[in-house]
């Protein structure tokens, strides 16, 4: 299978996540994320009518959208779609104008203290070596899955075919590629 026909995606199982923050710490260690910043994060959401309440814990990150508004908004071409649909920022082209930050419905981007805009890369440097993203490898409850959507036998394809899932803010029309099993 050629490289270009791959479509990387992440599947996150909200039924398994306990919110331990291991993914967050693994990402910080793997990618040298500076102090006080994060590329992925935990969200705890409680919904319902007292006393009937439902809680959900999610590990969130950049959705590596199929139709990424940040890439559209970037005036210099620094934000781009790389191999496997992964959205990346070329540091040397980034002016730090923050248009992409304002355009992201998921607020997944931030300004790195060194002056460029930074975000989750799906650990593409690891993926290219045949490894899984750092957050996926450390998850103690195995609630994170990573793989190629164009491969029907991949972990992610099978999970999405067999389980009920949702994406964040589908109304934004960005075709997000991080899926949440519910």
């Amino acid at each position: 299978m050629s490289k270009t026909s791959r479509r990387y995606a992440m599947v996150m199982d909200t039924k398994k996540c306990v919110g331990c923050n291991a993914c967050v710490l693994a990402c910080k260690a793997e990618n040298n994320v500076p102090e006080g910043f994060c590329r992925d994060w935990i969200v705890e959401e409680v919904r319902g009518t007292f006393p009937k309440l439902q809680a959900e814990i999610r590990s969130e990150r950049c959705n590596h959208c199929g139709d990424p508004p940040c890439v559209d908004a970037c005036p210099t071409g620094a934000s781009h779609i790389a191999e496997g649909g992964v959205v990346l920022v070329t540091h040397d082209k980034c002016t730090g104008c923050k248009a992409c930050i304002a355009s992201c419905p998921y607020d997944a981007r931030f300004v790195h203290p060194e002056g460029y805009v930074d975000k989750c890369t799906f650990c593409l440097h690891r993926v290219q070596k045949g490894q899984l993203p750092a957050c996926v490898t450390v998850c103690p409850t195995r609630s994170l899955h990573f793989g190629d959507l164009n491969d029907p036998d991949s972990d992610v394809s099978r999970l999405l075919a067999t389980r009920k899932w949702k994406v964040q803010h589908p109304e934004a029309g960005t075709d997000p590629h991080v899926f949440f099993l519910v």
Partner: peptide, 25 residues
């Protein structure tokens, strides 16, 4: 009786983004 309750606890504290976006001053 009570309206729908939504409480979101966010672990993200990226400067300039959280708690609300303030990228442009």
């Amino acid at each position: 009786m009570n309206p729908q309750l939504v409480e979101i606890t966010h672990g993200r504290t990226n400067p300039g983004i959280d708690p609300v976006l303030h990228a442009w001053g």
